[in-house]
Design a protein around this nucleic acid. Sequence first.
DNA 1: TCTGGGGTCCTAGGACCC
DNA 2: TCTGGGGTCCTAGGACCC
Length: 447
Amino acid sequence: MRTQASILHLDLDAFFASVEQRDKPSLRGKPVIVGGTGGRGVVATASYEARVFGVRSAMSGREARARCGHAAFLSGRFYAYREASNAVMAVLRSASPAVEPLSLDEAFVDLAQSENPPDLDDLDDITRFAEELRQRVSEVTGGLTASVGLGTSKFIAKIASELNKPDGLTLVAPGTEQELLRPMRASVIPGVGPATTERLRRAGLHTVADLESVSLEELIGLVGKAHGASLHELCRARDDRPVLAERETKSVSVEGTYETDLTDRRLMQGLLSKQAGEVAARLRANGFSGRTVTIKVRLHDFTTISRSSTLDSPTDSTSAIARTATGLLADLDTSGGVRLLGVGVSGLADWIQDDLFGDLVGDTDTTTAISSDAAAPTPIELPRRGGAWPPGMDVVHSEMGRGWVWGSGRDVVTVRFETADTGPGPVRSYAISDPALTPWKPEPTTE
DNA sequence: TCTGGGGTCCTAGGACCC
DNA sequence: TCTGGGGTCCTAGGACCC
């Protein structure tokens, strides 16, 4: 356990709604609800003016409308949220390289890894440092506010940031963690949701202090091995989880809930295929491919079914994913109607076998991945569509977003792809086996 | 017409291999 | 011949988080 309050948690206040109020002055001071616009939508974020009426995240749009019908209901502008988020994360990274984003509006920062840290033994200095960060967040986002928590662990920092919302700062002094936690409800512990809360309640356990009085064995009997062990530690304020700057992507998925239940199988197959295309495009844009294709089907009565199939080799191909997904759907009874369909790919590898460009050039295998890393000479921007790409290759460019060619040989091209969503992907080399595409040397182009 | 979308992690059972 | 591991992979479902 750390003895210094060197972990910071920052949480932007009512983030989506605040961005809307920032960009549209007429919404300022008024209830704004992002999400919940469709017939089956839920609230993503409610401004504080809307929360007064009891509107909360994850509430159905129907209920939000009943509670606060005069609010502005917006469907959301994710580009604007991402842009603001990027600016905030950049501010945090300037304070320490160890920044772990949890979502667009939340991140942990490890001040102990900062190059210019405050005096971590001086609580006033830490507070001053954090206040400066909050100030800079406000400056770079055009006035958005953030709440910050500081403590000796992720758990404590996160709880601290909740204590003075909105636009607040809370430091939990080292050594005072347990007295802070003991009276709190068990559900403040991350991982304790509705189901666990109910189990604990039935065992007579309501507060953190109650949990502390229970043996590890009892907790494991109650909620399972992994969960029980983590509860046993966290209720004693013991948490040494590190702040992880980069986390590996494990899966990519797309799902959709439809306004009215689907009954037509052909339509479902078409929608699943469309989603497969979106998943495949995102895989390609990020340099991923995966072996396991999973479909998710939510029936009219909200029961949710998943079916998966693991392929022999990883794919990022629309046709392979669509074929697998529709095949999985074929075995399900959907006669009662379907409200949600989804497709996902997991078991990701950062290399691709055989049909890298199969989807895009008519499913003929023209290229083969040969290595997953390569020395990186001077970056060259990819030629634009219709530019110096050989026939067929410009399509790849438009599918995959921005990218840079990092080098090329007679029949090998080394490329780094990047999208606005994810930033740079891994550097990869491909052999070009189609004689029509070789020899080929990309021309440097200017921005 | 209660109940989004994109993720992560865990559990449990069965197959399969050594 | 019988019994019994352990380890890994795969599948389905559930809980949880923002």
